[in-house]
Design a protein around this nucleic acid. Structure first.
Length: 476
RNA sequence: CGGGGUGUAGCGCAGUCGGCUAGCGCGCUGCGUUUGGGACGCAGAGGUCGACGGUUCGAGUCCGCCCACCCCGACCA
């Protein structure tokens, strides 16, 4: 096989994705089935995602805390739908210190139960509310089939858990965090997600309502990239999270939970990547600018490195890497950093020193069109600007792709054709779980989320009148 | 769990009508020459051929069983 060749064509999309993850050194297969080793470069990307999300959480008044990884099995069984939803994918610890445990411990698949237990202790009065806590953690779900970043037995995420005095406030919080995710995806990851509510059959186990941000991957499949749940009083009742209100009445809290995981890394790869490798959005890229110095002789070396130095010092706010590896040709370095998705490359050689220019190559526009030769002068301003241009262009490109692959349909034939061959279908939907299951069976497409809609129309499947529209797609 | 596929050097593979000391490319080590799109020469290192059992004078190759991983489904962030 030719090691250099990659193809993102739909039939090879999965292979292409795996190759990208492995060759860009984002992650590796672990010697444990279904688990993943996140390598330093991949973790650096995740750290930037964390940083951006965390600053948004702080801005909305949330604080971080940590809860145990082990959950007594009995906690899991308190909320009926929750346990039913998660039971098949739990890892259970039965032994500790060489002895069988009196009560098995579940490795957290999510932390509603243990956090709910603590909230019950912490919350007494309406004055204690709202509680707005986030946790950065790893969780374990025993999935049948795994895929790097998208679905691994162990994954990293943040999970926010909040408790409120009223249903309105909880709903507001649920939607506010959905907005935070939407904003993050669009403006940092350059992924034009579609936000909306999940259907009853797709919602989180134990939630009253689940909201999602859905992203379209390069093969037009959908990927749920973040969720925000309004848990109503379901968990509050199961875990006895109560407070005395202003009228001295004992009330159950309304709780929410929301999360974004390392799956976001997979979403970025599958949304922007091309046949040359990764394309990372400048806002999140571990390395925003790579500088490749080029010289033949030692005399050239000094003058080139002097310019390199000046450029690095002139861009103090950017994440820059100078690739001064010896014994590797510039061509090799170009390809190497393209594979790793670095948004902007600056080549500095003897010609540039002489002409006072910089050779720049944009990762979002492959080949010659992405190259430009600009005067040194003013690079302190135009390099950061170019990164913003790249960021904006990536979003625009992804948005165009998304919009070109969403089709409104009003009959089943068209629906089937769209979800099987073209992308996402948007259609009037009569909101019937049985029909949803039938559609899935016949076309493999699931209801991704409800869409904004006005007025009424005829459901393409049931023929009934409805006021709801929904997006359907095949998904990861 | 069902269907398909693959296990041979760090990676990618050839060898599979049983037969010599198991090969190729990339990578790796040393020396030298090289540096504007994946450099070159010379010299090297690196293998219980996934595991176990069987057939045979002889097994990477044939037979049996097992294991691991990948892809497609069912399940899911």
């Amino acid at each position: 096989m030719d090691e250099k060749k990659l193809t993102s064509q739909a039939e090879n999309f999965s292979e292409w994705y795996n190759q990208l993850v492995l060759r860009a050194e984002l992650a590796d297969y672990a010697p444990v089935r279904g688990c993943m080793v996140v390598r330093p470069y991949g973790w650096a990307l995740w750290e930037n995602i964390q940083k951006e999300l965390d600053s948004r959480f702080k801005a909305t008044g949330h604080v971080n805390a940590a809860f145990p990884m082990f959950i007594p099995q009995s906690f899991m069984t308190k909320e009926k739908e929750h346990v039913e939803g998660f039971a098949p994918e739990l890892a259970v610890v039965t032994h500790g210190g060489g002895e069988e445990l009196e009560e098995p411990l579940v490795v957290r698949p999510t932390s509603e139960t243990i956090i709910g237990t603590m909230y019950a202790k912490w919350i007494q009065s309406y004055r204690d509310l709202p509680v707005l806590i986030n946790q950065w953690a790893n969780v374990v779900r025993w999935e049948m089939r795994t895929k790097l970043f998208l679905r691994t037995l162990e994954f990293y995420w943040q999970e926010g858990h909040t408790a409120h005095a009223t249903a309105e406030e909880a709903q507001q919080e649920t939607l506010r965090m959905l907005d935070v995710y939407t904003d993050f995806a669009r403006n940092e990851a350059a992924i034009p997600v579609i936000a909306g509510r999940k259907s009853e059959s797709e919602k989180f186990a134990g939630a009253s309502a689940t909201y999602t941000i859905e992203a379209m991957m390069g093969d037009t499949k959908a990927l749920q990239s973040g969720t925000s749940h309004n848990l109503g009083q379901n968990f509050a009742q199961a875990f006895d999270i109560k407070f005395l209100d202003e009228n001295n009445q004992l009330q159950y809290c309304y709780t929410t939970s929301w999360g974004v995981s390392t799956r976001m890394v997979g979403a970025i790869i599958m949304t922007h990547g091309d046949d040359q490798g990764l394309v990372l959005p400048p806002h999140l890229a571990p390395i925003q600018v790579v500088i490749v110095p080029i010289f033949r002789k030692d005399e050239e070396r000094d003058s080139v490195m002097e310019v390199v130095d000046r450029v690095v010092k002139g861009l103090p706010s950017l994440r820059i890497k100078v690739d001064d590896r010896q014994g590797v040709t510039p061509g090799f370095k170009f390809n190497d950093w393209e594979m790793k998705g670095v948004p902007l490359r600056i080549e500095i050689g003897p010609k540039d020193v002489q002409n006072h220019t910089l050779a720049l190559a944009r990762r979002d526009i492959p080949g010659k069109e992405g190259k430009s030769f600009l005067p040194m002068e003013g690079f302190e301003a135009y390099v950061p600007e170019m990164l913003e241009t790249i960021q904006a262009n990536m979003l625009a490109k992804a948005t165009r792709f998304r919009d070109e692959h969403i089709f409104e349909v009003d009959n089943f034939e068209a629906f089937k054709d769209v979800v099987e061959n073209k992308g996402w279908a948007k259609a009037w939907w009569s909101d019937d779980a049985a029909n949803e299951a039938k559609v899935k069976e016949e076309t493999k497409a699931t209801l991704r989320c409800y869409a904004e809609s006005e007025g009424e129309g005829i459901c393409f499947y049931s023929g009934r009148k409805t006021s709801k529209k929904a997006y359907f797609a095949r998904s990861y």
